[in-house]
Design a protein around this nucleic acid. Structure first.
Length: 427
RNA sequence: CGGGGUGUGGCGCAGUUGGUAGCGCGCCGCGUUUGGGACGCGGAGGCCGUCCGUUCAAGUCGGAUCACCCCGACCA
């Protein structure tokens, strides 16, 4: 679905949204028909929303593959025994489980994360140092029974996550990959358009490593507070922003200022936390049994979409970065230009430009313009009798406030050339 | 889970001292319009979140319950 006619696209825009819905990302995505709210913290992704999600996934997929990741897809339903082995089944230990009963008897859980199953799988596939290292990842729907869902699609009970797991012979091998993953993450955020406001931060690492790293995007709607030092080279999460941490980095409290931020990634050195209880071992060259050293690397894909909607939007609607927009161009005709607009649509389609053609005959110009702004495609192309008489069409960027350009079709094609790149070639 | 708020046609809302529900948007039909969410005329569409109670009578009063929103707590 590279191009589409608006009259055929399954979506609808709304002028109003419930006064209860205060989160900007939810308001805009609901009004623009990208998502549908099912329950608190549970959303359906409609065709437009799914396209954005898929584009984010493709950016991540490319970078994960580039550092050796191999994509797979694990199950949602979880084996209780596996999680008992690591003492993470009990609700007193992990309080966000959704659990359910098997008709034949017995309990299952809906996966909140996948360390246990992936480690168990690997015991079947890793036996020798020759089997290492291995890096696998997936895009999977996670379930977390949050006490309180909030902020639209930024904190939900059901969400899409990219989770990668690394299996290394030892810490040195792991550290090398961990550094690569950091670079890959930065590349992902850059392509999404939030590279300059997304920082790798020091966060609490739990019991098994002192720190983990998070990737935090500065965003007023974020739930977290990060402390950014003056030259932005060091960013520390609030929960570990104390004298001890500062001493470790030789930094002074006064060099930092607090900022609201949203967590868009989190990477952990897991060490032997899961490989030990689940007995994931390999034989080295001397046939001595070694425990596999693990790491995990998450990105909340659907949350990321929410963060982007928060950041790239204005009072009129969404403003998608080119790499994420469902379509590059919102095309519409004014006056008696049906034939010419249709022709331009076909030409752009042939050229591989992702275009949404608002061909609705019974809709007035104002509504089409308003929709173009609400839906937030990077470019708007208008075909009118006036401009056609001059042999031209009108091009306007959604972002910024530049006046529309009057261009010949050839000039238009040249301008849109950069937009031809297609990140979302799914379905 | 503590505190606060909200549930009424598809969506957004109003509904007075209790008397059997209304507005805007959207939708359907006809006509006029057509560079910024047009207008006229005619229509369709609701057991007022759910249950129990008070009453001759409940959207409205009482109780319970469910759902949703916000603040806080929580968040490998």
């Amino acid at each position: 679905m590279l191009t589409m006619k608006r009259s055929e696209l399954f979506t609808k825009t709304f002028k109003t949204v419930s006064a209860e819905e205060t989160s900007r990302n939810a308001q805009l995505l609901l009004r623009a028909g990208y998502i549908h709210k099912e329950l608190a913290g549970v959303y359906t992704y409609l065709p437009l929303g799914l396209k954005v999600l898929e584009k984010i996934k493709n950016i991540i997929r490319t970078e994960m593959n580039a550092i050796g990741g191999q994509e797979m897809l694990m199950s949602t339903l979880q084996n209780k025994e596996l999680w008992e082995a690591t003492d993470r089944w009990s609700d007193s230990k992990v309080d966000i489980w959704f659990k359910t009963e098997l008709a034949a008897g017995g309990q299952l859980g809906l996966a909140p994360t996948h360390e246990e199953p992936v480690t168990a799988i690997m015991t079947e596939y890793i036996a020798s140092y020759k089997d290492l290292p291995r890096y696998v990842y997936q895009f999977q729907t996670k379930f977390r029974n949050e006490l309180r869902a909030k902020s639209g699609i930024m904190r939900t009970r059901e969400f899409v996550m990219k989770d990668m797991y690394s299996f290394s012979k030892n810490q040195e091998e792991h550290d090398e990959f961990y550094e690569k993953s950091i670079k890959a993450y930065h590349k992902v955020y850059e392509q999404i358009g939030i590279g300059d406001i997304t920082y790798k931060t020091f966060a609490s690492g739990g019991i098994f490593s002192k720190y983990s790293h998070e990737f935090q995007t500065l965003c007023a709607a974020g739930e977290d507070i990060v402390y950014v030092n003056q030259d932005k080279s060091l960013v520390i999460n609030e929960e570990v922003f104390d004298d001890e941490t500062l001493a470790e980095f030789g930094a002074k409290k006064t060099d930092f200022s607090p900022k609201k931020a949203a967590e868009v990634g989190n990477i952990f050195s897991l060490g032997f936390k899961y490989s030990k209880p689940l007995k994931l071992e390999y034989a080295n060259k001397d046939d001595a049994k070694q425990t596999v050293y693990m790491g995990c690397y998450g990105i909340g894909v659907s949350r990321l979409m929410g963060v982007v909607a928060e950041i790239f939007s204005d009072e009129k609607g969404l403003i998608w970065p080119e790499n994420l927009a469902p379509f590059q161009v919102y095309l519409l005709g004014i006056g008696k230009t049906d034939k010419e607009a249709e022709e331009l649509y076909e030409t752009l389609t042939k050229q591989g430009v992702e275009v949404l053609f608002d061909d609705r005959a019974d809709v007035r110009v104002g509504e089409k313009m308003a929709d173009a702004e609400l839906l937030g495609m990077p470019y708007r192309v208008v075909v009118s009798e006036k401009s056609l008489a001059a042999g031209k069409v009108e091009l306007k960027r959604r972002a910024g406030d530049e006046a529309p350009l009057l261009l010949t079709k050839d000039a238009l094609f040249a301008k849109l050339e950069s937009a031809v790149r297609n990140f979302g070639n799914q379905s």
